[in-house]
Computed example of a mutant assay.
Amino acid sequence: MANSTFLSTNLTNTSLDTTAAIVHMTCFIIIVLSHCTFLYFVIIILRVFFTSANIRETARYVLFIHMILNDTLYLIMAFVLYVASVYYVYIPVPFCYIMLTISTSTFRVTPYNLAVMSLERYVAVCYPLSHSQLCSPRRSTITLALIWTVALLFNLADIVVLGSKVGKNFFSLSVICSRASMTRTTEQGTITLCSLSMSFSAVGLIILYTYIQVVLVARKIGSGKSSAFKAGKTIMLHAFQLMLCMMSFTSSVTETYLRRYQAFIGIINYLLFMCLPRLLSPLIYGLRDDTFRKYMITFRSAAL
């Protein structure tokens, strides 16, 4: 009886391992193909941006291009870290911390960028006469600099706490690079939790407020083809992306309570909640925008 139970357990584990391997390989292929498609659209969008003067001088497109570049950097860094963790590649602590700093900073910048883009649409609809002054390319650049400053402040606090709590020997080690391997104190966990909670709460409130205000204007106009109506749909897409980013918080829960399926839960969480919100950006904003779509079609026709 014991032998039969042992055999059954082994067969079950073998089946799970085989299923996990298939799921893992399938997701990995999807990730590679989706990243290649994403980079293809990014190249076209960047070419349109840098060869079209009127687009470069529009704050909306400056913010959009910044989001595309930020998401590209995040996806590249997240992919490198994921492959390194899967294949147990040991990385020196200083290099690991730099890579994690880039990854976590770009992760935070995404919702900040969504909030600023929502505010730009809000100003365009609710204060059209002041839009060119309040949302100039120069002001957009200053705003982006402030976004990065805020995002990096949390990492600065983290490295100060880490450096004060661990010895110098720690920085001479090589580790499997992950956020967990760099979290050595409870204070670091508190900093991470507070930074993400405050960031997503503030961004969520900004998106909600701007959406309500834009919808009220759209109702006054009463036209389904008005700029206010389109701006409301754009802000809703920002909210959808923010929701997908926030869903990444559930990864720790699923990986804790579904440890039996941890072999493929990790890659599914990575694909759905880390990659998907960023992969959607070129499709949502590049192809939906009439001006960008016209230029993209022109450039693609010229290339062919």
Results as ranks from 00 to 15, higher is better:
residue 200 F to A: 11
residue 233 K to C: 02
residue 243 M to Q: 09
residue 122 Y to P: 07
residue 216 L to Y: 14
residue 248 S to G: 13
residue 231 A to V: 01
residue 204 G to R: 02
residue 224 G to R: 12
residue 164 S to M: 09
residue 159 I to H: 06
residue 223 S to Y: 05
residue 127 Y to Q: 00
residue 181 S to H: 05
residue 255 E to F: 08
residue 208 L to I: 15
residue 212 I to R: 15
residue 174 S to T: 12
residue 225 K to C: 05
residue 209 Y to P: 10
residue 222 G to N: 06
residue 173 L to Y: 15
residue 210 T to C: 05
residue 179 R to K: 08
residue 175 V to Q: 10
residue 109 V to Q: 13
residue 226 S to F: 05
residue 250 T to F: 12
residue 120 E to Y: 09
residue 232 G to K: 01
residue 132 S to I: 00
residue 119 L to A: 08
residue 194 C to T: 07
residue 199 S to Q: 10
residue 203 V to K: 08
residue 182 M to G: 01
residue 215 V to T: 11
residue 218 A to L: 09
residue 141 T to R: 12
residue 190 T to C: 03
residue 140 S to W: 09
residue 218 A to Y: 12
residue 219 R to T: 01
residue 197 S to G: 08
residue 213 Q to G: 15
residue 157 A to K: 09
residue 146 L to I: 15
residue 236 M to P: 00
residue 114 L to N: 11
residue 123 V to S: 03
residue 162 L to M: 03
residue 141 T to I: 03
residue 166 V to A: 02
residue 215 V to G: 11
residue 172 S to R: 10
residue 159 I to S: 06
residue 215 V to K: 14
residue 232 G to F: 01
residue 122 Y to R: 03
residue 178 S to I: 03
residue 140 S to F: 08
residue 154 F to H: 13
residue 215 V to H: 11
residue 224 G to N: 07
residue 198 M to D: 07
residue 150 V to W: 15
residue 254 T to C: 07
residue 114 L to I: 14
residue 247 M to N: 09
residue 239 A to R: 08
residue 125 V to L: 01
residue 239 A to N: 03
residue 249 F to Q: 08
residue 227 S to W: 00
residue 172 S to Q: 14
residue 123 V to Y: 07
residue 232 G to L: 01
residue 109 V to A: 14
residue 139 R to A: 04
residue 125 V to S: 04
residue 236 M to K: 07
residue 134 L to I: 06
residue 180 A to I: 05
residue 146 L to M: 14
residue 182 M to I: 06
residue 231 A to P: 13
residue 188 Q to V: 02
residue 212 I to G: 13
residue 198 M to L: 05
residue 198 M to K: 06
residue 229 F to L: 09
residue 204 G to W: 09
residue 243 M to I: 04
residue 216 L to N: 15
residue 136 S to V: 04
residue 230 K to P: 00
residue 158 D to T: 14
residue 213 Q to R: 15
residue 185 T to W: 08
residue 121 R to P: 08
residue 184 R to N: 12
residue 254 T to E: 07
residue 226 S to D: 02
residue 218 A to E: 11
residue 195 S to Q: 03
residue 217 V to L: 12
residue 188 Q to P: 13
residue 120 E to F: 04
residue 132 S to Y: 03
residue 194 C to W: 15
residue 194 C to H: 10
residue 154 F to M: 07
residue 117 M to P: 14
residue 254 T to Y: 10
